[in-house]
């Protein structure tokens, strides 16, 4: 569904992503892992079109994403820190988003919206919301338009355990529906039981990409976190 070819991004002289190539198919659930500053977020932003790559291409279903913004209709994004206009009401935000996509309420996926009980605070201004509530709004927005590709940047950070579980269940469900899902997370336990593929980035390079099964085979570890630490230590030695 997405093919990334020799993608590089420099901020000024500082390289953030170095020649990353990656092929992702539908029904994958990719965990993008790496230390802070490893280029995960930049890579995600390149896919979203928020960051313009220095070189390399990203194709979405064979179309270069830089030439056409239409691919974003198939894309749901949950940012690390959702921030919205302070004075806009929650309800208005959802209306606006539906408006921009020209979709009726009936055409949207309101499962998260309902299970997070967002209608309870939909008349509040977005500026009055707590961080957790904002995350809930972000999550509901990400799933709202039945996206084929979901990009979730630290989705469970700031959510209470119950909401976190609700979100995880939803992610799993969408995965089973054949969606491609890309998650970055520091909390490995959160994604351990749902992820199918793992990509490990460090200093802008993609050092490892494989299915979870392969990773387990290489590292000889059964838990994901241990497998990851195996990767990290292996590359530190080099």
């Amino acid at each position: 569904m997405i093919s990334i070819d020799a993608l590089s991004k420099k901020f000024g002289r500082v390289p953030a992503v170095r020649s990353v190539s990656l092929e992702l198919q539908q029904a994958q659930l990719l965990s993008l892992i790496g230390p802070n500053g490893s280029g995960k977020t930049t890579l995600i932003k390149c896919i979203l079109g928020l960051v313009v790559p220095t070189s390399g291409t990203i194709l979405f279903r064979g179309q270069n994403i830089q030439k056409d913004t239409h691919y974003r209709s198939f894309l749901g994004y949950m940012p690390q820190m959702g921030r919205f206009p302070d004075h806009m009401k929650v309800r208005q935000l959802f209306e606006l988003m539906r408006d921009l996509r020209k979709k009726n309420k009936s055409e949207t996926d309101t499962e998260i919206f309902e299970s997070f009980r967002i209608s309870d605070f939909e008349n509040k201004g977005l500026g009055e919301l707590s961080g957790g509530m904002r995350q809930k709004v972000s999550a509901a927005l990400a799933f709202l338009f039945h996206p084929d590709l979901l990009i979730l940047d630290e989705p469970t950070a700031g959510l209470d355990p119950i909401s976190s579980e609700i979100l995880k269940a939803k992610i799993l469900k969408e995965h089973q529906n054949g969606k491609l899902i890309i998650i970055t997370s520091h909390i490995l336990s959160d994604i351990e039981d749902i992820t199918t593929h793992v990509a490990y980035m460090q200093e802008g390079e993609m050092l490892h990409y494989s299915s979870v099964q392969e990773l387990h085979n290489i590292s000889g570890e059964n838990s994901l976190s241990r497998a990851i630490s195996f990767l990290m230590t292996r590359h530190q030695k080099n």
Binding site: G49, L50, Y71, R72, G82, P85, L141
Partner: peptide
């Protein structure tokens, strides 16, 4: 600057910059 994140959100929508 205050609407930076909102612009980010908009940019993830199918709208041209």
């Amino acid at each position: 600057y205050n609407s930076y994140e909102f612009l980010e959100l908009l940019l993830a929508q199918p709208m041209s910059r």
